[in-house]
Simulated scan of single mutants.
Amino acid sequence: MVGLIARAGLAFGVLLTLAALLLLLLTPSGTAESSVSALTVGLGLFLILITSIALYIERNRR
């Protein structure tokens, strides 16, 4: 069950990161939108890291 949730979190993290990265490239720097996009990229990368660790632990437990 944990592996299934972690895979869904990983997919959501990748989608979130890619969408925010695209927006970050398209918005002018120094605006509020670019700051929010940069924060979202960071949160997406953090989500990818956490779910990757959960998947690694789940696979090694078996």
Rank of each mutant, 00 (worst) to 15 (best):
Thr51Ile: 14
Leu43His: 09
Val41Asn: 04
Arg62Gly: 03
Pro28Leu: 03
Thr17Pro: 00
Ser35Lys: 01
Ala6Cys: 01
Leu26Gln: 05
Val36Asn: 02
Phe46Ala: 14
Met1Phe: 06
Phe12Val: 01
Ser35Cys: 09
Leu4Val: 06
Ala32Tyr: 13
Leu15Gln: 07
Gly44Ala: 11
Ala32Pro: 09
Leu49Phe: 13
Thr51Met: 15
Ala11Val: 13
Ala19Thr: 04
Ser37Ile: 02
Val36Phe: 03
Phe46Pro: 02
Ala54Val: 13
Thr17Phe: 15
Ser29Cys: 07
Glu33Pro: 00
Val36Lys: 00
Asn60Tyr: 06
Gly42Met: 03
Leu25Asp: 11
Leu16Phe: 14
Leu26Met: 12
Arg7Pro: 09
Leu4Lys: 04
Leu55Val: 14
Thr27Gln: 05
Leu45Cys: 06
Gly30His: 11
Tyr56Arg: 10
Arg59Phe: 00
Ala6Gln: 01
Ser52Asn: 12
Tyr56Lys: 12
Val41His: 01
Thr31Val: 08
Thr27Leu: 07
Arg7Asp: 01
Leu22Gly: 04
Ala8Tyr: 05
Ala32Met: 13
Glu58Tyr: 08
Met1Lys: 09
Leu24Arg: 01
Ala11Pro: 02
Leu47Gly: 08
Ile48Ala: 15
Leu25Tyr: 09
Leu10Ile: 14
Ile5Cys: 07
Ala6Glu: 01
Ile53Asn: 03
Leu24Lys: 08
Leu21Gln: 01
Ser29His: 01
Gly3His: 09
Ser34Val: 05
Thr17Glu: 02
Leu22Tyr: 11
Ser35Glu: 12
Leu15Trp: 08
Leu18Val: 12
Leu18Asn: 07
Asn60Arg: 10
Leu4Thr: 15
Ala6Gly: 04
Phe46Trp: 15
Thr27Cys: 12
Leu47Asp: 14
Ile48Asp: 07
Gly30Cys: 12
Ala20Phe: 00
Arg62Lys: 05
Ile57Thr: 15
Leu45Lys: 08
Ile5Phe: 10
Ile57Phe: 10
Leu21Gly: 00
Leu23Ser: 06
Ser52Trp: 13
Leu15Gly: 09
Gly13His: 08
Ala38Gln: 01
Arg7Ala: 05
Ala19Tyr: 03
Gly3Ala: 13
Gly30Trp: 14
Ala11Lys: 04
Ile57Ala: 14
Thr40Gly: 10
Leu23Ile: 00
Leu26Lys: 08
Ile5Val: 11
Tyr56Val: 09
Phe12Trp: 04
Arg59Pro: 00
Leu18Lys: 03
Glu33Cys: 06
Arg61Thr: 02
Ile50Cys: 15
Phe12Asn: 08
Thr27Ile: 09
Tyr56Gln: 05
Tyr56Phe: 15
Leu21Ile: 03
Leu55His: 13
Gly3Asp: 06
Leu10Pro: 12
Ile48Cys: 15
Ser37Arg: 00
Gly13Leu: 03
Leu43Asn: 08
Ala8Lys: 10
Ser52Pro: 07
Pro28Asn: 04
Arg62Val: 05
Leu21Thr: 04
Leu16Lys: 12
Val36Cys: 02
Leu55Ala: 08
Leu45Arg: 04
Phe46Ile: 11
Thr40Asp: 05
Leu22Asp: 09
Val14Ala: 13
Gly13Ser: 11
